Simulated scan of single mutants.
Amino acid sequence: MKISSNTINLRLLDKSDWELFKVLNTCPKIMEHVFEPFSIEETKKRFEERTQPWDGEVGQWLCLAIDEINTGEKLGSIGLKITNDKARIAEVGYLLRIEAHGKGVASEALKLLKNYAFTTLNLNKLVATCSTKNIGSYKVLEKAGFSREGCLKQNSIINNKYKDDYVYGLCAPQE
């Protein structure tokens, strides 16, 4: 499976992506608004889960690597997991290497994933949660057409501090 634009490819995460996955999940700066950085052991476990074949089961992540077309550079990952099979709702998430921040990579990847989710997977709605302090992330969501549906106070704990999260949603276009 490969989904492409003029600048990036999305492809299934595979064993060659270990170094990228390790950086994304253990770097304090990248994880600042997401989770506490994972240990190497937890990162290995998550990597094994994310590189398993995706069968669309509720709660299982479809994890895609984001590669720059011209250089082949591994820029980050993006994915979705179905959270409600009956209502056809999936959560989306993305992480980028610091060097790829602010260059439109997340926006382009989310646009590709959104189109795939609605046209190929026939999903009804995509949702995302992000820290109220993660301005870059919620601007990506808003640029992709997601609407802020609420604010969850003290919804997560990162580095022993409660964090507020925004909840976003995007429904499939109706014909």
Rank of each mutant, 00 (worst) to 15 (best):
K153S: 14
T129F: 07
K111C: 06
R148W: 01
F38I: 14
K22C: 10
E36C: 13
H101N: 09
V105T: 04
W54D: 04
K153T: 09
L121D: 03
V105L: 04
D165V: 08
C63Q: 10
A109G: 01
F38C: 07
K22I: 15
I69R: 12
G72V: 15
L141H: 03
G104M: 10
N84V: 13
K111I: 13
E73R: 14
L141G: 00
V105Q: 00
L80H: 01
L62Y: 05
S156A: 14
I135M: 02
I158K: 12
P28Y: 08
R88V: 10
S156D: 11
L64K: 04
N124R: 11
S156H: 14
L24A: 00
L20E: 02
E142C: 11
L24E: 00
S16C: 15
N122W: 00
G93S: 09
T43C: 07
W54M: 07
L95Q: 04
W54C: 06
F118Q: 07
G145Q: 00
N115A: 08
A87I: 15
C151Y: 06
N6Q: 12
V105W: 02
R50H: 09
L13R: 10
L110W: 04
L141F: 04
C130K: 06
E41H: 14
I158V: 10
G104I: 10
T120I: 09
V167E: 10
V105C: 03
L10T: 09
E142S: 11
V92K: 01
Y116V: 02
N124F: 07
S4H: 10
D164C: 05
W54A: 13
Q52I: 13
R148E: 04
K81G: 07
L80C: 03
G93T: 01
D55Y: 15
C63K: 12
E36I: 14
G145M: 01
V127N: 08
Y168C: 01
K15P: 06
A90S: 12
W18C: 08
